[in-house]
């Protein structure tokens, strides 16, 4: 019963959702639309479940002064403050002018935005350093990888565009590389991924794939 009922629900819900493609009637659309809304609510609920789990994991460490308890306290306090300000500010939380007081918008503008932008900017240094180590023109494939990356990077900056005579051609070649061979490879990957998603979806609906239900 622990697994039979969920497998049955998976099958019924999956078949109903797939049926929308074959039954283009507004009543049926309304049914699948409603079920999709429930799915969105449950997916949001799963995020909250993750939040509860995070608190369950970190709070005991802080209370018992375990390893790295100070950092975990920072995490929990910042989480609590953000939640409090978010609920206190309500629908006006992101309105212009809210940053003038200590508010959710203030936290968003002066804490979250610089942190997230710098976190991603930090990757620039690591990607460049990894690329420097990995890009060696050992064979034709590696050379092509190196040339394409160098072309896109060089032709994207003013110094590349401004090279006499060949500058404008470099920009056209960069755009062409991104639009044509890049698109060909990406489409091949997308087609492969779509075939994979279809087969996995079928396996889930038919109950052949049960890993999402966990162990016994």
């Amino acid at each position: 019963m622990k697994r039979t009922l969920p497998i049955l629900i998976t099958f019924v819900v999956g078949v109903i959702m797939v049926g929308e493609f074959f039954i283009p009637h507004w009543r049926y659309r309304a049914l699948t639309g409603e079920m999709l809304e429930w799915g969105i609510i449950l997916a949001a609920g799963a995020f909250i479940l993750g939040l509860i789990n995070l608190v369950q994991v970190h709070l005991p460490t802080v209370v018992q002064r375990g390893t790295d308890w100070g950092y975990k306290a920072v995490l929990l306090v910042s989480l609590a403050v953000t939640l409090t300000m978010g609920f206190a500010n309500g629908k006006e939380r992101l309105a212009s002018g809210m940053e003038a007081t200590f508010s959710y918008k203030w936290i968003f503008d002066f804490v979250y935005t610089p942190l997230s932008a710098t976190m991603f900017a930090l990757l620039a240094f690591y990607i460049a350093s990894a690329g420097f180590r990995a890009f060696r023109a050992r064979n034709a494939e590696a050379t092509l990888l190196l040339v394409a990356a160098a072309l896109v990077m060089f032709a994207s900056v003013p110094i590349g565009e401004g090279v006499p005579v060949i500058g404008e051609y470099l920009v056209v070649l960069k755009d062409w590389t991104l639009d044509v061979p890049n698109n060909a490879a990406r489409r091949a990957i997308f087609i492969g991924a779509a075939l994979g998603a279809i087969s996995t979806g079928l396996r889930v609906i038919l109950g052949l794939e049960r890993s999402h239900l966990g162990g016994e």
Partner: peptide
Amino acid sequence: ARIPIAFIVAAFAGVKLT
């Protein structure tokens, strides 16, 4: 919790499939 998890997975698998 397996019941709602089965619902989420099936709903999104069905949507993804088509």
